[in-house]
Design a protein around this nucleic acid. Structure first.
Ligand SMILES: [Mn+2]
Ligand SMILES: [Mn+2]
Ligand SMILES: [Mn+2]
Ligand SMILES: [Mn+2]
Lengths: 218, 218
DNA sequence: TTAAATTTTTAGACTTAACTAAAAATATAT
DNA sequence: ATATATTTTTAGTTAAGTCTAAAAATTTAA
C-alpha cells in the first residue's frame, strides 16, 4: 500500500508522462506538486525502492508498468468520484476537484467498483477527461482545441484543458457546457480571438479561452 | 482543522464519554485506540492546546463543547457514510465500518449535507446507532438488551452492541436483522440462554448473543 | 499510614515527509 | 573547450506521531 503522499507523487508523474511521453524531471514534478526538488528526490528514491518508478541519478524518472497501473487507478477513482458528485449530489463541475483529491485516496476496491456501477460505468468525468478502466487503460477520443478550428468549422464541446474553478465558472456564465455545439463564425488575426455560435447566440471568445476548450470536430 | 490522528482521538474520547459519563483516563483511550499511554499523553496535550479537551495532569480528560461538537460531526459522517454504503452501494452491514473509518475524515461540509439529503435524512445507521444532527445532538431511542427481557416479552430488534463483522455475519446467518420482531419463549437459568421466536421460527441464542442485541420493547 | 501496585508523564529515540543550504552533476553559452 | 547557468542531489533540520524505558504521581492494600 501507498501513503497519500506517495499516491500524489505517482499521480503527478502519471499526468506528466501523459502529456510529454518523455522521462520526467525532478523539477517538473516539484513544480506540479508545488514542493521542492530536494523533497522530490527523496520521494523518488523511495518510490524506486518500491518499484513503481525507474530512477537513475540525474536521469529523471519513468513509471514502471506496476506504477502506471497504480497511478491510473488513483486517477480512475478521482474521476469516478467527480462524476458521482456531479450526477448524484448536485455539485457543479467547478466544485468537485478538491473533494475528489481527498476521495481518490480511499482504499476499498469494492467501493469504487460499486460507485462505477451505480453511475452506469461512465467513460468521462465532468470535465471531459477519460476515466481509466480497471486495468488502467484509457481510450482517448479525437478532440481539438477550439483555437485550432478554422472559420466555419464546427463541433461539440467535449472537454476543458484548464479545469480551474475560475475558468469553469466563467464558462458557466457564458453558457458554455460540455455537449454544446459550437461553430466558428470568425477568426480575428489581430488577437486570435474567435466569434463563435453557440445555442443560436454569437459569442466572442479570446484566444486564452479558445486554447482551453476541447472540441470534437464534426 | 484537525489531522486524522487528532480526529481519531476526539472520536475515541467522545465514545468513551458516552458510555461512562466520567472523566476519561489516559489508559482507557490507549486501550480503545490500541496505542500506548505515552502517545495518548502527548496527543491529549496537543488537543488541550487546541481547546477541544480540558486536561489537568494525572486527572484525565473531558471534551469541551467545541470538542464534543467536533467529535459528533465525525461520528455523524461515519454513520451517514455507513448508511450510504448499505442503501446505495449494496454493502452489507458487516462490510461498512472499515470504509467509513476512512470516509469520516473527508473534509467537505457540502458533501456530507448532500449525502444526508440524498439518503433522505436518516436517523440511524445500519447497526441501529443514532446519527448526530448538524449541531451534534443525538436522540437516543428507548432500547434494552435482549438479555434483559423476561419470558413472554417481545419487541423489535433495533441495534447491536457488538458491531464486529463476525457477530453481524452470525446474525445474518440466523436471520436476525434490524426491524424483526422477537419474542422470548424461554429463559434458561442454567446458562442464561434464550429460546426466542423470530419469523415464526424458534431460535436458541446464548447469553453472549442476547447481551449484544438491542430490542425496543413493545 | 506506610508499602506495593497501578497509572500517568517525561525523556529520548525513530520514521515520514517536509524544508534550506551547499555540493555535485549536467546543460548551455561564449 | 572552458566558463556560466541550471538542475539535481546530499547533508543537516524540523514537526508530527509513534515507541520504549524510566521517573513521578496516584490509587489500593496491608
Ligand atoms: Mn479533478
Ligand atoms: Mn476532472
Ligand atoms: Mn462503524
Ligand atoms: Mn455503525
Amino acid at each position: 500500500m501507498f501513503t497519500f503522499s506517495e499516491e500524489n507523487y505517482l499521480k503527478a508523474i502519471y499526468h506528466l508522462e501523459l502529456d510529454s511521453d518523455k522521462v520526467i524531471s525532478t523539477n517538473s514534478i516539484a513544480k506540479k506538486l508545488e514542493t521542492k526538488a530536494s523533497s522530490v528526490t527523496d520521494m523518488i528514491q523511495k518510490l524506486s525502492e518500491k518499484e513503481v518508478v525507474v530512477y537513475k541519478k540525474y536521469q529523471g524518472v519513468t513509471l514502471t508498468d506496476f506504477g502506471r497501473k497504480t497511478a491510473a487507478n488513483i486517477v480512475r477513482k478521482h474521476r469516478l468520484w467527480e462524476v458521482f458528485l456531479v450526477e448524484k449530489l448536485n455539485f457543479s463541475w467547478d466544485e468537485v476537484h478538491d473533494v475528489a483529491e481527498q476521495l481518490e485516496h480511499i482504499k476499498s476496491p469494492k467501493l469504487i467498483d460499486q460507485i462505477d456501477a451505480f453511475l452506469g460505468f461512465p467513460t468521462h468525468d465532468p470535465h471531459g477527461d477519460p476515466i481509466p478502466d480497471k486495468e488502467g487503460n484509457l481510450k482517448t477520443i479525437e478532440k481539438s482545441l477550439l483555437s485550432t478550428l478554422s472559420k466555419n468549422e464546427s463541433g461539440i464541446c467535449v472537454g476543458v484543458n484548464d479545469s480551474s474553478s475560475e475558468f469553469l465558472k466563467f464558462l458557466d456564465k457564458k453558457g458554455v457546457t460540455l455537449g454544446k455545439q459550437i461553430t466558428v463564425l470568425e477568426k480575428e488575426d489581430f488577437d486570435a480571438s474567435l466569434l463563435i455560435e453557440i445555442d443560436n447566440n454569437k459569442l466572442s471568445v479570446s484566444n486564452k479561452i479558445a486554447s482551453n476548450l476541447y472540441i470534437q470536430r464534426q
